[in-house]
Design a protein around this nucleic acid. Sequence first.
DNA 1: GTCTATAGCGTGATAGAC
DNA 2: GTCTATCACGCTATAGAC
Lengths: 201, 201
Amino acid sequence: MNSATRQKIVMTALELFYVKGYNSTSIADILSRSQVHSGSLYHFFPGKQDVLVAVLEFYRDGIRENLLDLAWMGVDDPIDRIFALLNGYRTGLLESDFAWGCPIGNLALELSEPDPNIRKLLDVNFKNWIAAVEGCLHDAGARLPEGTDRHALAEFILTTMEGAIMQARTAQDIAVFDRNIAVLREHVALLENAARQIWIN
Amino acid sequence: MNSATRQKIVMTALELFYVKGYNSTSIADILSRSQVHSGSLYHFFPGKQDVLVAVLEFYRDGIRENLLDLAWMGVDDPIDRIFALLNGYRTGLLESDFAWGCPIGNLALELSEPDPNIRKLLDVNFKNWIAAVEGCLHDAGARLPEGTDRHALAEFILTTMEGAIMQARTAQDIAVFDRNIAVLREHVALLENAARQIWIN
DNA sequence: GTCTATAGCGTGATAGAC
DNA sequence: GTCTATCACGCTATAGAC
């Protein structure tokens, strides 16, 4: 089930879906780029959509080692970890001249009426990302005001990242991304400040 | 240049691009839905992409009468106006069972390497929306702390809306949208509170 | 400006030898 | 499991009568 050929197909599709999107990536694109032939691809996958499923499962199963571990290497402070994660997407935008962004977010808006399986896989990828950030917010403990809805705040941080990427890509200007993150930082600072106020009183 | 047929084409394309996306909408879809024949469409437009240009120009030129005036009817408070605008998208999500969202945001993420003209039209649509919100923030005057970057905050509000729509659509759950807007509301409340503190001291 | 017919191509997918 | 050849379809776009 996990032959080298299958892996090559999935990783190539992952790359192409990321840069060109799902609809604009043809099977022929995947085949020529991966040096695999039609018969092999259809030996492993019933159809194109099943390749997408495999890609989304790869993201889902590898979020820790392929995303979080890399972003958090040498970063211990929980709040710093959140912004280190966001900074990874910033780097991606710059390195790719705004071609990359968030692979899940791109697909979520491109596939308007996705197959239920696909929709659930997109959703679980978002939810895993949110859970990781929520963990950081939990670790921040009393630095946030008591009663802060850490789940809602984690969702909001994903929201900020997705929206900031969308605007920066469209404007082709990283400053838009930076200004968005700066406002988020200010929000977190206001919360930390509020927590301190409560502590004093 | 603005015959009834041309208008019918543009409005039908607008609808279909909104619901199905650009790539997934075929010329044949537009023709059958609008009851127009191929020859007429290609009489007015060189190609499919030019229909998209016309749609984006329609959004650009009609933001006030087709969006802002409707959302702001009977709403005078500038901060309320911002949340009334956001609430319009919430209604759209509910009424369409999560098929709608933000037409510009959808296209911005679907078209990964858009033609420069298209990219500029998407960008100008975002910028007009931001300018409208920035106007509200300007009208809020001293309710926000002195020195608040109102442009950055307006961008951030667009970011919040786009990210909230993306997540709510994917989860097919309006509560995700609501939680995101609630955090934004809290941020604005914290700013208003900070402005009051400065006033007291 | 409108209509019909159709060209020309790229697509997802299949057949069958090896 | 891999490879080549190819089908059947839907797509954008065009031609040309009216």
